[in-house]
């Protein structure tokens, strides 16, 4: 197995050198292999979201490096990061993930449009992904016409539309009821097993932790445990 994500002594300090210095990440070194289903856990303020943001190219580190495949993402500038994210990383956020004025189909297609993929490919891929997440019949519904769970399933489909190297999911079940959480986890687990899609979650949710095959625990910006089940 090859590493999709590699961080080396990753640091993120706020107000460095000042009395109110905050060490959101304090030397995190981590490798995520292709096809892993990993949960980053820890209490609030432990650095989960910061770690995901830096790995996802949404935030800049204070020190250390992060590689996605062979690319040192921490060395890219803003424009390069936007392009890198578009082609290599799928995102699922907590809630309100979708563009409200677009239908489910258009939301999934959106990423491929940005990638300038041909229409036939876009149509086929959108239908395939929405069918995989069980929403083939909701293609023309706008987000406000769907439940929170359905919206998160569309977000998963959108995250996969660009055929990314991995999917980052920041507390994806935070606003979902039990059934919706179970359905979403089933879908992601199935995609992980069948298509070897790499998932990296940050979560507080025990139901997600239970389904993860690897659990990395952060506290005060440091990894305090890394358990493979």
């Amino acid at each position: 197995m090859s590493a999709v994500i590699r961080t080396n002594n990753l640091q993120k300090y706020y107000n460095p050198g000042e009395p109110l210095e905050v060490r959101a990440l304090d030397g995190v070194t981590l490798e995520i292999e292709r096809g892993e289903f990993t949960a980053i856990v820890g209490p609030s303020g432990s650095g989960k979201t910061t770690l995901l943001n830096i790995i996802g190219g949404l935030d800049h580190q204070t020190g250390g490096t992060a590689h996605i495949g062979d690319t040192e993402i921490t060395a890219l500038n803003d424009n390069q990061l936007i392009d890198f994210r578009l082609h290599n990383i799928g995102f699922v956020f907590q809630a309100y993930n979708l563009i409200p004025v677009l239908t489910a189909k258009e939301n999934v297609e959106f990423i491929m449009l940005l990638q300038k993929r041909p229409k036939a490919e876009r149509d086929a891929r959108t239908e395939e992904l929405l069918t995989e997440v069980g929403l083939a019949d909701k293609m023309n519904n706008r987000p406000m016409e769907m439940s929170g769970g359905q919206q998160q399933r569309v977000a998963v489909a959108r995250a996969l539309a660009s055929k990314p190297q991995f999917v980052l999911a920041d507390e994806p079940t935070a606003n979902l009821d039990s059934q919706s959480t179970a359905d979403l986890l089933d879908i992601m687990a199935e995609l992980n097993q069948k298509e070897h899609v790499t998932f990296l979650f940050s979560t507080h949710d025990q139901r997600v932790i239970d389904r993860a095959r690897r659990v990395v625990t952060l506290e005060d910006g440091k990894i305090i445990s890394d358990v493979r089940k």
Binding site: I82, D83, R85, F91, F93, Y96, I99, L114, S162
Partner: peptide
């Protein structure tokens, strides 16, 4: 603001 953050995150160029 949140929506723009999402759009930028998923790879929409600022110019667009």
């Amino acid at each position: 603001s949140y929506e723009f953050g999402i759009m930028l995150s998923v790879g929409m160029a600022r110019s667009r």
